[in-house]
Design a protein around this nucleic acid. Structure first.
Lengths: 200, 200, 200, 200
DNA sequence: AATGAATGAGAATTCATTCAT
DNA sequence: GATGAATGAATTCTCATTCAT
């Protein structure tokens, strides 16, 4: 039903809808958001919404995909962090936390939607897997270099440590308190380093 | 409106409703559960539901309170685990994981409901605090005994390690895969022990 | 179904229910009053209510009857007011207004109930007729005595003048303002006297 | 939620709803009227009702406003009635009675609704005030012209006389008997004229 | 007489989606 | 492309009354 816009005007309308949807979802959550709210915020008629998106679920999934892509991008360390393992771990954690601080409101809505929408849940878990796989590869490299304890099960350890970080950003967003991210990143980096047996 | 039952018959009916609610919530989730489903499962008229509970939210909160109390009870280590710190940590983690395996379905519904119901969210976070405080006290003791690294910030460290465990049970429930809990508990205990500087 | 109480204890319970009903109806109006409110106020179980009254409507009608009887009684002039016609008219109006000041809250509820309950409406209108008939008889006497204008249609004139008084008490109760009853009674008595051609 | 219609089609639908609501309210009274009755009578879906009105109360208030405006319009005497005071009073009363004969069914429902809906009650009393003020102004003019008794309190007298008229139309509608409006208007005009001391 | 648990019909309202213009 | 009117299924909650104890 919904179609990719062919005209420039259409593209702009679709973008307005996406931006409006993000704003309204963040403000009201998924359930409380009405399609009419999104249309109103985008200054279009309700019918126009359905010109570009099949449903409320569909526009949300589009937002989720964009969110995940941005998160992955922004938390990549790559060549940036230098060769020091502990420094690389710290940078990775810091970037992840920072990315959540930027997008945390939408993330909360994703958690909500994932609790009753299979498509959203699948994307959420798939995205999580990607992060864990990256961490697992990193850990394996350190083991291969003889820097990390080679007896550890890299899969399980990486999953648990990533979960620790994930849990921190989720709960700190839930609690809404002004967290000291620096100290938290220091602490989780310390735990991470000790856990994989990195020499101090 | 709702009232505590005065007679034995009333108490039984109220208990039937609670049990029916738990079952239906676990099967269908919070949103998909209708009050009429609960009443039907309990073999009472809809009006009878409202004799004992003000709303769907109210009966859910009653279940949450019972759940939290049971979880706290079942995951207490106390004198059971002996004096060895690592063993105590392992037992605590194992009990927590086991308790979730028993009640995981309701826990998933609590996470869902917490995403749009403030009362549930408050309870969820308060319960979490209690666990973290217990872990913090345990860590402080080990530091005082000279067994754990005294330079660690006990609050932050305990929160992060508890978060790791919490995240594991949440996600493993979400993923619905048959996890090897023994291995996972071993791994998280190992991380925990290393993180607080427990001698191997 | 409901029965006249045979025991002393029963009579007391029935009286408590009537008194409680009056209080609750006055506070909340007919529609907002629940039978359970009445029972609670009377300190009896709901079932006990139905021992003495068939329904919510039935207890209300019982109150209406008592109200009408009291109103009629209290606004009777009889021999009290002396022989002067104007003085008799004034006393009658003053008593009627005073009686409403005492029972106005219930009267408002009767107006409400009369708007959807035929039995109440009938009683309300019948009571009104009784007052008008009394006024008509009074007017006819004055005409026979040559004191009032004999060309007037006594029925219509009495009905209109009674309506003036009735309207005053209804609206002044609705408006809830602190009315100057003395001045109002003076004014309506003046109108009444002039209308029937009483010599000044 | 409800919105003013933007298109001609919308305006027509809204008007159909208003007309249907008036008909159903008059037939069944406020309490017995269901929103679905109104929608059905207007040949629209229930949802369409809520496109234009927030609630059953809201559409009723809209009807009340229209009713009051029409009543005021139709009972205005203005230049129509000529300069003779008695004739002007008679025309005014006659128009008022006639207007009620046309709209009496809705008026009865307004009385009912005013007994439990504050917004309706406020409008009813405000409308009444407007009529009384008009009568007060008229009386003051006659006093200034030396035609009416200058010692009368114009406010109180006008209020009482208007109340007499109001009471007549209310009760004659309640009673549902075929009243002789001519005779009644004659009688109330006579009372009115005598009360304010108009020379015969 | 008194109790209070149980009943269930009934009505208002929401909002995602469709479709004629 | 854009508009906004129209749809109607679906669910909550109330409360007068009954009846077994």
């Amino acid at each position: 039903m919904s179609a990719a816009p062919v005209t420039e005007r259409g593209r702009r309308t679709r973008d307005r809808l996406l931006e409006a949807a993000r704003a309204v979802f963040e403000e009201r959550g998924f359930l409380e958001t009405r399609v009419s709210d999104i249309a109103e915020r985008a200054n279009v008629a309700i019918g126009t919404f359905y010109t570009y998106f099949d449903s409320k679920d569909a526009i949300f999934v589009a937002l989720v995909d964009a969110f995940i892509a941005a998160l992955y991008e922004q938390s990549h360390v790559g060549e940036v962090a230098g060769p020091d393992p502990r420094q690389r771990i710290r940078t990775s954690n810091a970037r992840f936390v920072e990315a959540f601080r930027r997008h945390g409101n939408l993330y909360g809505v994703i958690v909500q939607a994932a609790s009753f929408n299979d498509e959203v849940r699948r994307r959420r878990l798939a995205s999580r897997s990607v992060f864990i796989e990256r961490a697992t590869r990193g850990l394996r490299q350190l083991q291969a270099q003889g820097v990390a304890d080679p007896t550890l099960d890299a899969d399980v350890t990486a999953a648990l440590l990533c979960g620790m970080v994930e849990n921190f950003v989720e709960r700190s967003h839930d609690l809404g308190l002004p967290f000291d991210d620096e100290a938290a990143v220091d602490a989780m980096t310390e735990i991470w380093a000790r856990a994989i047996g990195l020499a101090p």
